[in-house]
């Protein structure tokens, strides 16, 4: 399936400073829990502990599925669909 994956709020620094990733995942179906591992293995460039912690995203990262908070979509159990737009955003604190 084809997915649009975006990292922002500074998180892109872990992914070769690239925000937008258009990827082909060679699976018929995949839940978000497993997609996180796929991202770690295929997109993440450095310091995995700043992206994942205990099988999920580390605290302070918000996950959006088609502009919705992933908590509304089932969280880690969400079944990813073809053409989904996923956003991983690091919360900002500056002012």
């Amino acid at each position: 399936m084809r997915l649009s994956i975006e990292f922002s709020g500074g998180l892109e620094l872990l992914f070769g400073k690239k925000k937008q990733h258009s990827v082909e995942v060679d699976k018929k179906e995949i839940v978000l829990r497993d997609l996180l591992q796929w991202i770690k293995e295929n997109l993440l460039k450095e310091r995995p502990e700043l992206f994942l912690s205990q099988q999920t995203v580390r605290p302070g990262i918000l996950v959006l599925i088609n502009d919705c908070d992933w908590e509304l979509m089932g969280g880690l159990d969400y079944k990813v669909e073809d053409k989904d737009e996923l956003v991983f955003i690091s919360t900002l604190h500056g002012g």
Binding site: S53, R58, P59, G60, I61, S90, H93
Partner: peptide
């Protein structure tokens, strides 16, 4: 954000 982010991720 039930848990605070790791201090080293904060800018």
């Amino acid at each position: 954000y039930p848990s605070p982010p790791p201090a080293e991720t904060v800018t």
